[in-house]
């Protein structure tokens, strides 16, 4: 996995995918997400200036020089690949044509409002996976804790359109948006996993991390927010095993894990847990996580049970 710093100079990296596959990830710097109002998202803060169509093509071409025939390609734009204001339809078509080997799976990301017949049609015939940031299956959470700007129903509709074209669907779920206690967040995530398993082939769990310029950062500074416990993520992954057993893919590749600003425990057990979680992800079996233990699990249980006494404010750092 690559850190944010090195990404500045390099707009691609490789990562291990489930079942031992390799993925080539291209970070395409566009003008950025046109919604950019989510409480935890730092992209609103560093929206870049407009990019010319040729610039986008150049980015893809230079990244592809390093492509070593990985099993799949992911194109992340920090926004929506299908948003015309980020990438116009002609450029989109040109980018797809630049990608070698028409059968390889290509993962793109988009908000549901851009997933339309008009936008999907040109992709027809390719092996596409469309990832949507659903975050939560609860409209109240979406509105009040994430400020997502769409409803669960919009996701469902988009998801149906995607499968009509025979594309794969991926749903991103958020662990611990602001204004939820650890327990509320965990319950919400489990409900969302139950829900997403009906409308997505792959579920990706994203624990909130503290990004500059966000509401979450402000709450964190005021000590009213703490990134989720790693134990919560472990618990959710173990819970998701029942869907993994039924052929769904569940992954989590948290950024900033084990650090103050990311999903973390007591900082002494984090590294081991993160390593083990990654192994479980690749072989898609989370049962092994059940053996993990550390003294700090008591603190996590305290947080689950007692945070309601302090109105959801974090108890432990």
């Amino acid at each position: 996995m690559s850190s944010r710093k090195s990404m500045k100079s390099m707009n691609f990296w490789r990562e291990n995918e489930v079942f031992g596959k390799r993925a080539f990830v291209i970070l395409l710097e566009t003008s950025g997400c046109s919604w950019r109002s989510c409480y935890m998202c730092g992209y609103n803060y560093k929206r870049t200036c407009e990019k010319s169509d040729q610039d986008l093509i150049n980015q893809i071409e230079s990244a592809l020089l390093n492509y070593k025939d990985e099993d799949m390609i992911k194109i992340f734009t920090s926004g929506s690949f299908l948003d015309d204001s980020e990438i116009n339809p002609t450029t989109r078509k040109r980018i797809l044509d630049l990608l070698p080997d028409r059968d390889k799976q290509i993962t793109i990301e988009s908000r549901p409002e851009f997933i339309t017949e008009k936008n999907l049609k040109p992709l027809k015939g390719r092996n596409i996976e469309v990832a949507i940031g659903l975050e939560s299956s609860n409209n109240t959470v979406l509105k009040n804790c994430v400020n997502k700007g769409f409803k669960v129903e919009d996701f469902v509709e988009a998801s149906k359109k995607i499968s009509n074209y025979g594309f794969k669907r991926k749903a991103y779920l958020l662990l611990k948006p602001p204004f939820l206690s650890e327990k509320e967040a965990l319950i919400d995530l489990k409900n969302s996993i139950d829900f997403a398993s009906r409308y997505a082939d792959t579920i990706s769990i994203n624990p909130v991390n503290i990004q500059n310029g966000t509401l979450v950062k402000r709450l964190w500074i005021e000590r009213k927010y703490r990134p989720p416990w790693l134990w919560s993520l472990v618990d959710a992954l173990i819970y998701s095993q029942k869907y993994v057993g039924k052929g769904k893919v569940v992954v989590s590749m948290p950024s900033g894990a084990g650090r103050e600003r990311g999903v973390h425990n007591c900082f002494s057990c984090d590294t081991e847990i993160i390593k083990k979680m990654d192994k479980c992800r690749i072989k898609q079996n989370y049962d092994d996580l059940k053996d993990l233990s550390c003294d700090c699990i008591e603190k996590w249980k305290d947080s689950l049970a007692l945070e309601k006494y302090v109105f959801g404010n974090p108890i432990y750092p």
Binding site: R223, V310, I315
Partner: peptide, 10 residues
């Protein structure tokens, strides 16, 4: 006082 815990840090 709901936010005493976080206030106490300041």
């Amino acid at each position: 006082v709901k936010d005493s815990l976080s206030m106490a840090k300041n």
